[in-house]
Design a protein around this nucleic acid. Structure first.
Lengths: 329, 329
DNA sequence: CTGTTAGCGCATTCAA
DNA sequence: TTGAATGCGCTAACAG
């Protein structure tokens, strides 16, 4: 880069001290109208804006927040980042984004890089269990918000969808519409969301002594959904999937085998990704709002910046979306 | 944040000057083995790592690259970011990501924020036409790479898929399999990629005087594809869509109207998004590789950092992916 | 209200 | 090889 124009250049141009220039740009101290105009004019002429780098070093705050997510390509995670960034950007914060590329072993390194970059706060979706390095960061005083997971054992801010409640509602709907035999095709059971959804599935059937139940777990992917369905000993009245991708895989297999959806078997998903309304048939699912999760996380962070102690846990509503992949029995 | 341990603390602990500590961490100057050990031990004990912020200010380089994309939630754009970030991270660069949320009027502001944050380079996918602020940044000496658009009029590095060649190949395939009546359902015609694809479509049919041709343009969305198909005066043998989303919309409408795909009408897309193999029927499309585009962009940037002048234009191969949404006539 | 000065944490002269 | 001193661009005392 060409040499930046610095505060000194502006001070010279305006014929004032650098402190005055600084004051004009910080707007918290009083400067006479005359000098303010001079400074503004000079700054404009030289196209000057304060360097965030120098401000950061001096202030000890960088107006920067770090993000660490498992996979930025996954719209679920990128929506979280987008939601949070929107809120943060409007407060003049900038986002440094790291993706671990679904490699949990890289998380600590990336977190360290983020810390060294001088972030003021951290928003993260962790891959598996709680990363103890987070504790260290918090001990050092870094504001943190964990997304898509609720951790009660430590005093850390968390925001997640009500996975349990959403799945409960879906199951109630299925039960009410006459389904009595079920299969659950879950995602990676080490994740918080998968655990909650599966637990809700189980709990919903606890009193249904007549119901037939099958539970498999795999990955949150199309392929995994396809395979798990193939591995099913028999096709039940309803296949409840851990997320939409699994449901797409299940529907694909079922259609190949000549089953008609929903006439022969109902299929449900979770998430309501953009393609769920485009699938054939459109998928009955539980909508969660990752964008809102991001916004909420940002607000929790902002409150910490302002010295407030936000509610440490926020559970976001989910919504049952009934489409044509399910029907009454 | 708790007070960071600084280079001074380490120097004291090790009983050396801060210059020596600095030298040990920079590995470019010679320090005796003894002092090196002392410093390393002290740094380890105090858990010291140099502050990137201070380094940036001092060096005038931040090891940070800025990204500006229209929509980070769109996997196409996030793949570009991911591909580039992977390459850059491995060279110890960190990514500052901005999304204009599909609002072209915000681009210049975000670019300015990025500049003030002290980025060493910029990778961007612009919304519409060339943003002249980019020129200013380049004039100031900032290395820039434009992605998904080829700009020949200015001396700027560009990387994009061979949209034209890909569409040509697809049309050749369609022509070879006996299709003679076509509709083209294009995306936003102000984007470079849309223009290239449409041009290739037109050029392919230039010598087919017998062919019947219809051209509509809209947005790169499911809804737009649905509507454009509805607006078609008659259903041709092949509906060539500007991207996969449009194709999904088209297929949805066609199926609702009782058309059988591909028996009654072939449908094609562009991009090969993850859902294209899951649709019913799976979509014939042209695959492009945004992740590779990102990687390539990063390499072009790195070469600029090293003072090299990279090829200013890189066109990436596309691949025809034949699936079951098309058949011979 | 304005200017002078110190120092954020570090890399890099210049001497020794 | 090592240390002392300087300054990157800026903010925040402290004086005036």
């Amino acid at each position: 880069m060409t040499k930046r124009t610095s505060i000194i250049d502006v001070a010279k141009e305006a014929g004032v001290s650098i402190a005055t220039v600084s004051r004009v740009f910080n707007e918290n101290s009083y400067v006479s109208g005359e000098l303010t105009q001079k400074v503004l004019r000079a700054a404009d002429k030289l196209n000057y804006k304060p360097s965030r780098l120098a401000q950061s070093l001096r202030r000890g705050r960088s107006k920067t927040v770090g993000f660490l997510v498992p996979d930025i390509v996954n719209p679920f995670f990128s929506s979280i980042v987008e939601g949070a960034s929107e809120v943060l950007n409007s407060k003049d914060y900038v986002s440094i984004v790291c993706s671990s590329s679904v490699d949990a072993s890289r998380e600590t390194d990336l977190l360290e890089t983020l810390r060294l970059s001088g972030i003021d706060g951290l928003v993260t979706v962790l891959m598996e269990k709680y990363n103890s390095y987070i504790d260290e960061l918090m001990t050092r005083g870094l504001p943190v918000v964990i997304v898509d997971e609720i951790i009660k054992t430590r005093n850390v801010c968390c925001v997640a969808s009500d996975n349990y409640g959403g799945m409960k509602r879906l199951m109630r709907f299925l039960l009410n519409t006459g389904h009595r035999s079920f299969a659950f095709l879950g995602g990676n059971p080490s994740t918080f969301s998968a655990q909650q959804r599966m637990k809700a599935f189980r709990d919903s059937l606890r009193n249904e002594t007549e119901a037939s139940v099958d539970i498999l777990t795999g990955e949150y992917t199309f392929e995994s959904g396809y395979k798990m369905t193939r591995d099913l000993e028999r096709v039940p009245q309803a296949i409840v999937c851990g997320n939409d991708l699994i449901a797409f895989g299940a529907m694909c297999f079922l259609k190949e085998r000549g089953f008609s959806i929903p006439a022969d078997v109902s299929v449900t998903g979770f998430d309501d990704v953009i393609f769920s309304k485009m699938s054939d048939p459109p998928l009955t699912t539980v909508r969660q709002d990752p964008y809102l999760m991001g916004q909420t996380a940002a607000e929790m962070l902002l409150r910490q910046f302002n010295g407030g102690i936000p509610d440490s846990i926020r559970l976001l509503e989910t919504e049952l979306v009934m489409r044509r992949s399910t029907c009454g029995r």
